[in-house]
Design a protein around this nucleic acid. Structure first.
Length: 375
DNA sequence: GACTCGTGGCA
DNA sequence: TTGCCAAGAGT
C-alpha cells in the first residue's frame, strides 16, 4: 500500500471514500457481527423497548453480564407500560448486582414519561430521545439509529478507540472527545433528501463500529490482520495503533472504612434497611452501616452510629469491595435486638429469604461474611 | 471539565 | 495484587 492512503485527522475523507469505507464495514458486519439477545436478525428492526432496555443495561457494562438481566426484565416486564407500572423498588431489586443503580431509577422514570407524555410509544428521533431520563448523547443516537434507522453518529468507548486509531488522534481523552465525535460523524454517508427512509443501514453501521471495537480493534492487542479498515488506518500506518487512544492520568483510589451491623431478632430474622434514594447504592437494600470514611472507626463511635444498642461482637476480618473511585473495607459487627428496639429502623428479613432480596454485591459479600462466621 | 456512580473479567 | 476496561449519564 502506497503512502498517503490512510485517513487524515485534519480533514474529512471525500464522500466517495466515506461511502466505500462504510460499505466495507457493513460487509464485514454481515459476516462477523455478533448474535446478541437484543439484536434483530436480518433486515427487520428490533422493538424500541428492547433496544432501549439493552442500551441502558449496556452502559459501562459487558455484554456477558447484561444477558441474564435483559432476559429477566423482558420476561417480567414485557412492555414499557408494564415497567412504568412497577414500583421503583421492584425495579431496583431486579437490577441488584448490575451496578450503577441510578440507571435503574432513571430507566423507571423514563418509562413513566413514555407512558404519560408519549402514549407509551418511544419518540423516533435523536433530539427527543435525548430529553428523556437516563438517555444521554450515546444512547439517544444508538436508539435512533438501531431502532428507527435514523442517521445518527453513535460514539461509545469502542468507537472512540476505533476512531482514535483510524485517524491517529494522539490527544489524550477526555480532551479528544470533541475531535473524535466530529471524525466519527464524518464517516456517516451523506444525508439523503430526508434523513430517514434511506437505503443506508445506519443502525447496522453503528453496531458494526461497536462490534469492530469489541472483537477486532481491541484495547490491548488489536487484531489488525483481520480488520476491514486496516488499510485506511493512520494509527496502524504510524505503528502506534495499540497505544491509542491516549488517556489522561487517573486519580488514585483512596480506601474508606465502615462498620456494618448484622442484627438478629429473637426469631433469627436480620435487620435490613433501604438506602437513601440518591447517591451511592441509592435506593438499594443494605445491612445498617456507619458512614464510610477514610479514617478509622473507634469502637465507641461505631456503637453510637448503630441503629440499635446491643452487645456487639466484632467479626474477625473485613469485607473488601472496590467501587469506581474508592476501596472499601467494611467490618461486620454481630448483635441481637428485640424487634421493638428497631421500630422504623428498617425491615426484618428471615435468614432463608436473604438470597432472594436483590442485594447489591457489596451487601452480598457482607452477608456471606456474617454467615460464614456463624458456622 | 471534573466528579460521582458498580461490578466482573482479565493480563 | 493491581490496574484497566466495558454499548455513559447526571450534576
Amino acid at each position: 500500500m502506497s503512502k498517503g492512503t490512510t485517513l487524515d485527522r485534519r480533514r474529512s475523507p471525500a464522500p466517495r471514500r466515506v461511502g466505500l469505507l462504510a460499505r466495507r464495514l457493513l460487509a464485514w458486519y454481515d459476516r462477523h457481527g455478533r448474535v446478541l439477545p437484543w439484536r434483530a436478525r436480518g433486515a427487520e428492526r428490533p422493538e424500541p423497548y428492547r433496544v432501549w432496555l439493552s442500551e441502558i443495561m449496556l452502559q459501562q457494562t459487558t455484554v456477558a453480564t447484561v444477558g441474564p438481566y435483559f432476559r429477566a426484565f423482558l420476561q417480567r416486564w414485557p412492555t414499557v407500560a408494564d415497567l412504568a407500572a412497577a414500583p421503583v423498588e421492584a425495579v431496583l431489586d431486579a437490577w441488584a448486582g448490575l451496578g450503577y443503580y441510578a440507571r435503574a431509577r432513571n430507566m423507571h422514570r423514563c418509562a413513566q414519561v413514555i407512558r404519560a407524555d408519549f402514549a407509551g410509544v418511544f419518540p423516533d428521533d435523536e433530539a427527543r430521545l435525548r430529553q428523556l431520563p437516563g438517555i444521554g448523547p450515546y444512547t439517544a443516537a444508538a436508539i435512533a439509529a438501531i431502532a428507527f434507522g435514523r442517521r445518527a453518529s453513535v460514539v461509545d468507548g469502542n468507537v472512540e478507540r476505533v476512531i482514535a486509531r483510524l485517524f491517529a488522534v494522539e490527544t489524550p481523552l477526555p480532551a479528544a472527545k470533541a475531535e473524535v465525535r466530529a471524525l466519527a460523524a464524518g464517516l456517516l454517508p451523506a444525508d439523503s433528501p430526508k434523513d430517514f427512509h434511506t437505503d443506508f443501514r445506519y443502525g447496522d453501521f453503528a453496531q458494526a463500529m461497536m462490534d469492530l471495537g469489541a472483537t477486532v480493534c481491541l484495547p490491548r492487542g488489536p487484531r489488525c490482520d483481520v480488520c476491514p479498515l486496516a488499510k485506511d488506518c493512520a494509527g496502524r500506518a504510524a505503528g502506534i495503533a495499540d497505544t491509542l487512544p491516549r488517556q489522561a492520568a487517573k486519580a488514585l483510589r483512596p480506601t474508606r472504612r465502615g462498620v456494618a451491623f448484622w442484627i438478629e431478632g429473637p426469631d433469627g430474622a436480620v435487620l435490613l434497611r433501604r438506602r437513601p434514594p440518591r447517591g451511592l447504592l441509592g435506593g438499594m437494600l443494605e445491612l445498617p452501616s456507619t458512614d464510610w470514611r477514610e479514617t478509622d472507626w473507634p469502637p465507641a463511635e461505631a456503637r453510637a452510629a448503630a441503629p440499635v444498642s446491643a452487645d456487639w461482637r466484632p467479626l474477625p476480618g473485613v469485607v473488601r469491595h472496590t467501587f469506581t473511585h474508592f476501596h472499601l473495607e467494611l467490618a461486620v459487627w454481630v448483635g441481637t435486638a428485640a424487634k421493638g428496639d428497631a421500630t422504623n429502623a428498617g425491615l426484618w428479613v428471615r435468614r432463608d429469604q436473604l438470597g432472594d432480596l436483590g442485594l447489591p454485591t457489596l451487601m452480598r459479600k457482607a452477608v456471606a461474611h456474617a454467615e460464614a462466621a456463624e458456622d
